[in-house]
Design a protein around this nucleic acid. Structure first.
Length: 504
RNA sequence: GGUCGCGUACCCAAGUGGCCUAAGGGAACGGAUUGCAAAUCCGUGAUUCGUGGGUUCAAAUCCCACCGCGACCUCCA
């Protein structure tokens, strides 16, 4: 069964295939920067890359997935990509110092706000925690294969080598200000990925580019590869003086180091298309002499929240951890972030999160029923059951440029049908679908002190209610239930007693 | 200003020329169940696809215009 993907590079749908069928797919994803906690918009992009990887695996490919964790302090305002403004790691350090003073630093965090490496490591670990909760496979693999999530600060020699090669091949030059720039005019294919050809770029120049920086460059679109700056927070020795790398460089260098000069797939958010990925292509192709850097480019569109652009000032800005703390299960957040097609703007809503949770709970109930049926020897059914049939449609939908909405519909349809077929095979089919959705393993709220406190309170109230119900004191029973509702708890009376969950 | 994408029921969302008098989920409503709820199960739900034109035997699907939203061009997933 073929898998078709939209390729940003060709702006068309293409069948994804490998030259050698048993070779692993070389897949590079632009990962997070670690100046702060990743927000749900970041995670939509990372999780879509994860779904793509899982979809490829469902279709029989082996995938070597690499995702970088950017720990170099890039600049807050990158005037014409020359490095201006303030180091973001320094900004993060100041924020941490303030939080420390206010006593608002997260429990157990001992961190020196003046040490950029410590700041980066602090947020990198928090990212990995969030990512593993959400089932990002590459973050789970990182535990045993840390090289799959490389840090640019540990790959500076590879970046320097790349720049040297670009200079030697005449694709880069050292300007009067000592900065090493990539010469976009030396690469005729510049603009192929984004559509921002040099001609088009000239149109949009108007007034935004500072004359001082432009003066030393051969072309306004030339971008920085290495900037000598002995006062920079994070700096390394180089043939061009102590300084720091340009912000496109790390991905080219690390993709090459871990996957080779030519890769099969590269992903990122839509905003990465230009300039970041355009510049990566230019650097990588010019350094390697190959015509192709990545065969396929996969870009996820941005996320909105409750119909609006997510922003801190609107109060609709969420990190994954914010939501986990409210009792949102990682499974529900994962599904809400990936169920909308990756090439359309998705609208994240609290209601959507609830919808997802209900769907997942129904799937989990179906799985439990199947597991029970599979445990006892059942008459072997010759016919395929609903889940085995759904898997065929599911796989086809997933292979259709990751049409998860259609795939999920196939699963839901199976849920509504009469159980039939061999229970073991049915269970295997359901689990195969979950190998892409990735929800069964993480369908529980995260443990926390606050959650424990709530649980204790709820148990006490439930005990009171049990006593009232035993005495048929319905008024008291309902009063207690109202109290529970006020705590954000929903209860369920069943034959096995009363269960409860946090209403999200 | 330039380039590109999108607009389907109360909400999320599939469908991109005839199988569409439009999947799937949620909400709502009616019923079963329950001390009452919740959960569960059964049922109801767009003659219509942003608006106005056009092409076609046939359009949600193609073309044009307008309106609305978004992205990129500039740090951003």
């Amino acid at each position: 069964m073929p898998i078709r993907l939209y390729n940003t590079l060709t702006r068309s749908m293409e069948e994804f295939a490998m030259a050698a069928p048993d070779a692993p797919v070389r897949f590079y994803s632009c990962g997070p920067t670690v100046y702060d906690d990743a927000h749900i918009g970041n995670f939509r992009s990372f999780l879509n890359a994860d779904v793509l990887r899982r979809a490829l695996e469902l279709h029989g490919f082996r995938v070597k997935h690499v995702m970088n964790i950017t720990d170099v302090g890039h600049m807050t305002e990158d005037d014409s990509a020359d490095g201006g403004g303030e180091d973001k790691m320094a900004v993060a350090g100041r924020r941490i110092a303030e939080a420390k003073k206010a006593g608002k630093l997260p429990a157990g965090a001992e961190i020196d706000p003046t040490d950029p490496y410590a700041i980066a490591e602090f947020y990198a670990q928090r990212f990995l925690e969030d990512a593993r909760h959400l089932g990002l496979k590459v973050a789970i693999e990182e535990r045993t294969h840390p090289e799959l999530m490389p840090r640019p600060t540990r790959c500076v020699p590879q970046m320097i080598a790349l720049v040297e090669q670009l200079v030697a091949r005449g694709h880069a030059y050292i300007a009067a200000d000592g900065v090493v720039y990539f010469s976009v005019q030396s690469y005729p294919a510049y603009g192929r990925l984004s559509g921002n050809t040099l001609d088009n770029l000239r149109e949009g120049e108007g007034g935004r580019i500072s004359a001082a920086h432009q003066a030393v460059k051969r072309h306004p679109a030339d971008f920085m590869l290495w900037k000598p700056d002995p006062s920079h927070l994070m700096r390394w020795p180089s043939p061009w003086g102590e300084g720091y790398p340009g912000w496109h460089l790390e991905c080219s260098a690390m993709a090459r180091m871990l996957l080779g000069d030519e890769i099969d797939l590269h992903s990122g958010g839509e905003d990465n298309i230009f300039p970041h990925h355009e510049c990566e292509v230019a650097q990588s192709c010019c350094a390697s002499g190959h015509h192709v850097f990545s065969r396929f480019w996969f870009h996820t569109r941005h996320l909105q929240v409750e119909g609006e652009k997510m922003s801190k000032s609107k109060g609709n800005f969420f990190t994954a951890r914010d939501l986990f703390a409210k009792g949102v299960t990682p499974a529900a957040l994962r599904l809400e972030l990936v169920r909308t097609h990756y090439r359309t703007n998705s609208n994240f809503t609290m209601q959507g999160l609830r919808d997802c949770q209900r769907m997942i709970d129904r799937w989990a109930a179906a799985r439990a029923a199947l597991a029970e049926r599979a445990a006892s020897p059942s008459p072997n059914a010759a016919q395929h059951g609903p889940f085995e049939r759904a898997l065929v449609e599911f796989k086809d939908a997933v292979g259709d440029d990751l049409n998860l909405a259609r795939a999920i519909a196939a699963l839901n349809t199976a849920i509504g049908e009469e159980p039939a077929g061999d229970a073991k095979a049915e269970l295997a089919a359901l689990d195969a679908m979950d190998s892409v959705l990735g929800v069964f393993e993480r369908n529980a709220p995260l443990a926390s002190d606050a959650a424990d406190d709530l649980a204790a309170k709820v148990e006490a109230l439930l005990e009171r209610r049990r006593a009232a119900r035993a005495a048929k004191d319905w008024a008291e029973s309902d009063r207690v239930r109202d109290e529970l509702t006020a705590l954000g708890v929903r209860i369920k009376d069943g034959p096995q007693g009363t269960t409860w969950e946090r209403a999200v």
